[in-house]
Amino acid sequence: MIVYTLKRLLAGVITVWFIATATFIAMHQVPGDPLLNDKAVSAEIRKNLERRYGLDKPITHQYLIFLRNMLPPNPDFGISFTQQNRRVNDIIKDHFPVSAILGLLAIFFSAAGGVLFGALTAIYRNRLPDIVIMFLVILGISVPSFVFAALGQLLLVNVNSLMGYSLIPVAGWGSFTHMLMPSLVLGLGTMALLTRLMRTSMLDVVNEDYIKTARAKGLSPQRIFFKHQLRNAILPVITVLGPQIAVITTGGFIVELVFAIPGLGRYFVQAVQQLDYTVIMGTTVFYGAFLVFMVIVVDILYGFIDPRVRVQ
């Protein structure tokens, strides 16, 4: 297990290096001088920046500087081009927690909902609840997240105007009520996917021999469901959670935009729109590292749940 973890971590580090390099190359493909866009930079700042990023040096040198700056434990992502005097590290530090809370809630909603609805559809297979839920699942998979975000907001507006006062805030951040709708909307697509997966998984498990054994042992249907079926059916669902974190993270960009949430995603999109290169590079590498390690974390956690992996 420890060897496995170390191997995974090493592969993760290499992947992050790959991401950083790809980011660097991509950014150097940008036509023109990154410092010479319409956001005029004063000569002094320009000189500072040039020295700092070694822009006057050959590209291999710049690459090494870039890599050295990224090194843990104190990565330094530089200073924003457009927000004067704001360090990219600070932007990440200030806004990532917001995105993280949003994402965690969304993961929670989607996992809980996916397992619950998936189990329900399997229990009521081919009957009304199954048909209704699966119809919604197909919708959930086919409707883009920004439409859900817009509809969610519309719903809140209508609910509030119906109530005559602001029951749930339509946008912004701060209290738990702010978080509800955005995280629900964010988790919806993943929830649909997980529901589908859980359903297939449940139906596979029902036909397994060990369920027949459990029945032959004289266990109650409830006990069989919770002790034998559910646990085995959830396993494949957990394995896709890792990659789904990436989906939820990028989905967060849109939700943060629509609901005006001060998360890192919104700043990233803003930076992209304003071509704020340091912020783009910094957040891309940060996000990349975050996602790579989240996948590893989920895989290792999975090992604790599935004995077949744990022991090996």
Partner: peptide, 11 residues
Amino acid sequence: FQDPMTSLNPT
């Protein structure tokens, strides 16, 4: 049952 490999709960 016939197949002991699949007749016990793996988890």
